[in-house]
């Protein structure tokens, strides 16, 4: 009877609410109950990544406040001319909608993954990757446009020189995250399509058995990339 709790921690009663927090953390076993370890570790990674991006945004705000030269008019710098008319922030708005759409398809991929709908999951992950690749492509276009206009990490023709360094650092780091995400999405789509997750095939790198929780963990990363963009959009492009 007493051994039951020792050998099978799942047999212990699980409490909810604040009491549950206390009992989970003081249970002298795994703290994150009913959460696959991969998911808990992804959350911890995302937490550390949050600090990285938070540092970037805080340092950007610091230089923006402290610089003696006026900050460039961001709305104008990122405007596009459509049919002879200048539309402010048009490209950035489209990029925002694309990234949100990719999050939507990813969320649905996770849902169909848990329903073991291989075809729909793979197609939705592929759609997510396509949206992500489009986003990176538009970012490349944006970088090209700004570089040709003379924006450099050490100066630019529009105002405070710190604008360039903040821009390339923040959007570059975010774009890198998106690119890495696209690569992993394609790998995950292939795994799902082949049926690796149904057959629990060991992965080629880690040897971990395939599992549809992997799609949700991949999704967590992807939503995080979208989440970071929400903050960059607000603080860098709109502020």
């Amino acid at each position: 009877m007493t051994n039951e709790a020792l050998t099978n921690p799942a047999s212990l009663p699980v409490e909810n609410g604040l009491k549950g927090v206390v009992s989970d953390w003081s249970s002298d076993q795994r703290a994150f109950k009913k959460v696959p370890w991969g998911k808990a570790m992804m959350w911890v990674f995302l937490l550390s990544d949050t600090f990285v991006f938070a540092s970037f945004l805080v340092s950007y705000m610091t230089v923006r406040i402290s610089t003696t030269v006026p900050w460039p008019n961001v709305s104008k710098v990122f405007s596009l001319t459509v049919g002879g008319q200048e539309v402010p922030l048009l490209l950035i708005a489209i990029m925002t909608f694309i990234l949100i759409s990719s999050s939507g398809t990813m969320a649905m991929a996770v849902k169909f993954g848990y329903q073991k709908d291989r075809r729909k999951t793979a197609l939705l992950i592929l759609a997510t990757a396509a949206f992500g690749a489009t986003f990176v492509g538009m970012q490349a276009f944006e970088w090209t446009k700004l570089i040709m206009e003379g924006v450099r990490p050490w100066g630019n023709p529009f105002g405070a020189p710190q604008f360039g360094s903040s821009f390339f650092m923040i959007t570059g780091f975010h774009g890198f995250h998106v690119s890495v995400g696209v690569v992993f999405l394609l790998i995950m789509a292939a795994k799902v399509w082949r049926g690796d997750l149904d057959r629990e095939t060991p992965g080629f790198l880690t040897g971990r058995r395939g599992n549809y929780e992997m799609v949700e963990i991949m999704g967590l990363y992807w939503h995080f990339v979208d989440l970071v963009w929400v903050f960059i959009f607000a603080f860098f492009y709109l502020w």
Binding site: M106, H223, L227
Partner: peptide, 12 residues
């Protein structure tokens, strides 16, 4: 919603 935080255990 997308990251399912609303349905996770409070400890996490």
């Amino acid at each position: 919603i997308f990251m399912h935080m609303a349905w996770e255990r409070l400890a996490l």
